[in-house]
């Protein structure tokens, strides 16, 4: 019996008016009609004869066309023994209690950034974002980043406020010296440009946007879509922004993210470990996209990162992200 089989990393997600099929290994997705999504789910491991048998004859050509589309785009194949290709498990777990962190700094910040980084490293934190809203000296940058030598961080993202001292060559040298830097964004820049190293490993963007504080965050956009196995599986079970995230805002408050209102203590008096263990710190970690208003009907829900800080109704913990302009019911972006 020849059946259509999706590759295990190709997973359809149904939305209110259309669906997508994610290729989580290749990191892309395609739009498919909801009717095709229904067929793929309802008739999993069924032969084409069985599928066509349930549809009127006028639909057969369309069905063939859509299966051809899936094969041409590398989403699936015809095979006699579909049971030999089990579905991918959508479980998610991580060995680190904290996987990602944000540290915000401005001129009035009065805490030891290097000490925060050391505490994050004790968590075996993978990804760190350092956001400087004011200009910081090269010496300070080096002093802070030197803490990350021989650390567990896999990725460091650096946001700097534009100053002529941050030349192209400085940024290249910085990324070369601190190999964990994934990219540098120089905000408030008079011009927009991209700097990359000769071997394309280092990326820096100069952007005109003036970042004054954390309120710029929470944007929901196609450019942030990340169709990969880790995000897709994490989104099935956890809040895909706040889960295993910890932050220190510019005033030194320990929070889920700098834009959230609740503080779990000042970093000057409370360790990150103590904050993590406080009641309520993990409350937002389990708010899944499937529970959030509007998001639960959106085809992008497992590849799009949520925002719980800026929502359409602050009193409702399941309210839609306020800065999302996508309407899944009409499949349009405002």
């Amino acid at each position: 019996m020849t059946c259509f089989k999706l590759y295990s990393a190709c997973v359809p997600v149904k939305g209110a008016s259309r669906s997508i099929i994610c290729n989580l290994e290749k990191g892309n997705f395609n739009y498919i009609p909801n009717t095709l999504c229904d067929v793929l789910v309802e008739y999993k491991n069924c032969s084409i004869d069985i599928i066509k048998g349930d549809f009127d004859e006028s639909s057969h050509a369309e069905l063939d066309k859509h299966f051809s589309f899936l094969i041409e785009n590398g989403f699936g194949f015809w095979y006699d023994k579909p049971e030999e290709f089990p579905d991918m498990q959508l479980d998610w777990d991580h060995s680190s209690p904290i996987t990602n962190a944000i540290i915000d700094v401005n001129d009035s910040s009065k805490y030891d950034i290097s000490e925060v980084i050391r505490q994050l490293d004790d968590f075996r934190c993978e990804a760190l974002q350092l956001r400087f809203f004011n200009v910081i000296s090269i010496e300070e940058i080096n002093q802070i980043l030197s803490t990350t030598y021989e650390s567990n961080f896999m990725s460091i993202e650096l946001y700097l406020k534009y100053h002529p001292i941050y030349s192209d060559s400085f940024l290249k040298d910085l990324c070369k010296k601190y190999e964990r830097i994934r990219f540098v964004i120089v905000h408030s820049s008079p011009e927009e440009k991209i700097v990359s190293s000769d071997d394309d490993y280092y990326y820096a963007w100069y952007d005109k946007t003036e970042l004054k504080d954390e309120s710029h965050c929470g944007n929901i956009s196609r450019k942030y879509f990340s169709p990969n196995i880790l995000l897709f599986t994490e989104s099935q079970h956890f809040n895909n922004c706040l889960n295993r995230k910890i932050s220190v805002d510019k005033e030194g408050n320990i929070k889920n993210c700098p834009s959230m209102l609740t503080s779990f203590g000042k970093i000057q008096h409370t360790s990150l470990k103590e904050a993590l263990e406080k009641p309520g710190f993990k409350n937002n970690w389990t708010i899944r996209k499937d529970e959030i208003e509007v998001c639960k009907d959106c085809e992008f829900r497992y590849i799009c990162t949520d925002c719980r800080a800026y929502t359409s109704n602050p009193k409702d913990k399941y309210a839609k992200p306020a800065k999302c302009t996508y309407d899944p019911y009409t499949a349009t972006w405002a």
């Binding site: 996987t99 990602n100 962190a101 944000i102 993978e126 990804a127 760190l128 974002q129 956001r131 896999m154 990725s155 993202e157 946001y159 994934r182 964004i185 952007d207 946007t209 970042l211 954390e214 710029h216 965050c217 929470g218 944007n219 929901i220 956009s221 942030y224 990340s226 990969n228 880790l230 995000l231 994490e234 895909n240 995230k245 993210c257 990162t305 925002c307």
Partner: peptide, 12 residues
């Protein structure tokens, strides 16, 4: 090449 699997923030 691998970096982190999702945006840490969405500030831009």
């Amino acid at each position: 090449l691998h970096g982190f699997h999702k945006p840490i923030s969405q500030i831009f």
